[in-house]
Structure formats: C-alpha cells, structure tokens
Design a protein around this nucleic acid. Structure first.
Lengths: 110, 110
DNA sequence: ACAATACATCGTAATATTGCGATGTAATAT
DNA sequence: ATATTACATCGCAATATTACGATGTATTGT
C-alpha cells in the first residue's frame, strides 16, 4: 500500500488537501512569499535567494505551476513568474471557508 | 538525499509549511471538517464515517494531535476529540496573513 | 475473573517526496 | 558559428508518507 485513497473522499476534500500539500514545503512557501512581496513578477532571483540547487527550485516551481498557483512566461532568456490571481483568490476562499467554520463547542469536553 | 532542508528557511516559513503539510491529506481534512461540523467533540464515529482502517485513522489523528490541531481526552472506553480553539485561531491568522498579502502587480508580465 | 470495546502502537510493504548532479534546450550575445 | 545564460528535465539515492494487519493496553460490562 502507501497510496492516498482519494476515492474515499469528496472532490472538494481532495482539492483542499491537494493545495495544502503543495503549500506544505518551506521552499514553496518562500517562493510564494517572494512573489507576494515583490509586487511585480520575478525572473529568478530565486536561485540566489533560496539556498537550494537550481534543479531543485525548478522542480518546486513546476509543482506550483501544475497546481496553477503560479504562472510563468518566457521573457527572453529567462522565465518570468507570478501568482495566478484568479486561482489565488479561489484558494483564499477555500481556506477562509474552512477556517471560518469554527464555532465554540456547545459541550466542551476536551 | 531526500530530506527537507529546513535550515534554509525561516522559522515561520517552516511552521506554515508544517501546518499545510498536516492539512495536505484528504483524510485529515475530512476529520477536521467533521470536528468543525459536529459542534461538539466526537468520540470516533470516524472509523465508521471514513472508509479507512482503524489503525490508519489513529495514525492521522496522531499527526493532527502532534501538530496540536486537535486535542483528545479519554472518556471512559473511548477518546473524545475536538479542535484546539487557540491553535485553530492562530493557524487561521497565519493563513489569512499569507492570503491577504496579495496585491495586483504594478507591472503584470505573465 | 473474563470478555468486549475502543482505541494506540508496531512492523512492514508500497509508494511519494526531496535534493542534486548531469544533461538537454532555447534565446541572446559575440 | 560558437559561447553564454537561464532555465527544464532525467535519473538516481536518501528519506518520508500512507495504509493496514497484528498486537498491546486500558476501561467497562457481565
């Protein structure tokens, strides 16, 4: 075994978990924060900024791209990355929805 | 290799990623949603609710417990789980902080 | 005391993730 | 044409995750 049994869960549960999984690595958090803070797109200061090898960063960027969190366009010899605004808004919604569901339990037993 | 190089990132990046990682499995999302929806604590309808084996669910509960997302108290023969309200609020803050940082880029190039 | 219930933990197999050197590819510079 | 730059991809080793049967451990019921 060792495979996540996605068939047991709802589409939305799998989607939320999938996005969380992509966010579940500090390098990818760092990349996203970098994209959030530099208000414009970036053409890879990333390799200098993070301490990881170029191949490793490229791989993380791919995961973010495949989850559609970021998008990139070729800009001459380099590639220009930025967040996908529509997707980012949707993800924000998804998580807000989860977090806001909390209410204090009527019968606190723990 | 194959080990996340946490030493390259800030404490807060590692923490956010760590929480996201815990949320990055549909079973754990399902458990959390279950805890959110039943306004009271639950004493394992989980094994019946989700389709996973008891050992597997116990393992997921442990991860949630170790990340302090949930807390459980022994209630006779069973264990009663609920969300950790303080921690949940803190996590909500952490994610809101991330999501709210988005502003439209001045120079959209992607 | 003995069985039943509700877990937790152990051990293990299957699979996924992480990181990086090596190599491939396309665009620009000389 | 050749070199350089800025990536992407491949292949692999190290490690982590997922799932579950088997087994251990309290607590309750009889």
């Amino acid at each position: 075994m060792g495979v996540t049994r996605t068939e047991l869960f709802t589409e939305s549960q799998n989607e939320l978990a999938g996005i969380a999984k992509v966010l579940g690595h500090p390098a990818r958090i760092a990349i996203i924060q970098h994209l959030l803070e530099s208000k414009t797109c970036i053409c890879s200061d990333l390799v200098n900024e993070l301490g990881l090898a170029q191949a490793t960063i490229s791989q993380h960027l791919r995961e973010l791209r495949e989850a559609e969190l970021i998008q990139g366009t070729i800009e001459g010899v380099s590639v220009c990355y930025c967040l996908n605004p529509v997707r980012w808004a949707a993800i924000t919604e998804l998580f807000n929805n989860l977090f806001s569901k909390y209410t204090n339990p009527a019968n606190p037993c723990c």
